[in-house]
């Protein structure tokens, strides 16, 4: 891969642009994978394999420190002058996520107002509030350990940094595991399905909105777990993060806290109301 860069680098001349094949591979993988999901499932596995390869290639370029586009000249300070390029990018991405989750939650609330039946928490709801309360605490604690990791690297305390980062990863994995356990129990024992089933027909809309909201949140947590795993790997690389250079930790942290906030709203809306 290294010589490939040397080659493309030369072609673009003085501008010094690096080429990368991974955007092409990732997009292709997305197309193949999605086509597989809607047609023939083995194709989706092929897509997933190519996606994994593309992602690995993308991250390896990143881990090797290949840089694509950097500001090497002064820029106009502007209204976001003390917000870094990547932090602004992360915040804007979070804005798009706010809209995605609002559409899902808003649609679910609207369906609730139109549903003929809705279970009462603690009365006839199949949901396990104590278990998800535990999950809520796990997620809050993981947010706390995440800021501890940031504090650790800011102060140069590598033990705290690495320990707290590992704790965050483990708490994230725990959250996802408990959710999988909860899904399993609800699906097979409580007959709560995303579709209308003959055993519990009254719970159809409830099931539909429950799985959509918690499912997409769970997918985002899983994505965060993946990011945290990568961050943990980088944290053990010598001198990758330093007290003056640790933006990656802050950015993954922002995403992680945002996912926490989504849960802060989902938990009362889905489980307690």
């Amino acid at each position: 891969m290294a010589d490939e860069h040397a080659a493309t680098h030369g072609e673009h001349g003085a501008a010094g642009h690096h080429g990368s094949i991974w955007p092409f591979v990732l997009a292709l993988a997305g197309g193949i994978g999605f086509a597989g999901v809607i047609t023939w499932f083995p194709l989706a596995l092929v897509g997933a394999a190519v996606l994994a390869a593309g992602l690995a290639g993308w991250l390896l370029e990143d881990a090797r420190g290949v840089r694509f586009g950097e500001v090497t000249y002064p820029t106009e300070p502007g209204i976001f002058k003390s917000v870094s390029i990547r932090k602004l990018g992360m915040w804007l991405f979070i804005v798009s996520e706010i809209f995605f989750f609002s559409a899902i939650i808003g649609n679910s609330l609207a369906l609730r107002t139109r549903a003929p039946f809705w279970p009462e928490p603690g009365v006839d709801s199949p949901l396990n509030i104590p278990l998800t309360a535990l999950n809520t605490f796990i997620l809050i604690t993981s947010s706390f350990t995440m800021v501890q990791a940031l504090k650790g690297i800011e102060k140069g305390n590598l033990r705290l940094f690495r320990g707290a980062l590992l704790a965050t990863l483990l708490l994230g994995i725990m959250f996802v595991s408990i959710q999988v356990y909860e899904y399993n129990k609800l699906f097979f024992e409580e007959h709560l399905t995303p579709w209308l089933n003959p055993v519990e027909p009254r719970l159809a809309t409830f099931g539909t909105t429950f799985y959509m909201q918690t499912g997409f949140h769970g997918a985002h947590v899983s994505g965060g777990v993946f990011g945290l795993a990568y961050l943990n790997y980088k944290a053990w690389k010598k001198d990758w993060f330093t007290p003056h250079n640790h933006e990656g930790v802050e950015l993954i942290g922002l995403y992680w806290h945002f996912v926490d906030i989504v849960w802060i709203f989902l938990f009362p809306i889905v489980y307690l109301i």
Binding site: D62, R67, Y73, D239, F241, G248, I252
Partner: peptide, 15 residues
């Protein structure tokens, strides 16, 4: 302006 060699921690995660 002369290029400043960035240390790897600046990384470009997510780019």
């Amino acid at each position: 302006v002369p290029t400043v060699e960035a240390s790897p921690g600046g990384g470009n995660g997510g780019r």
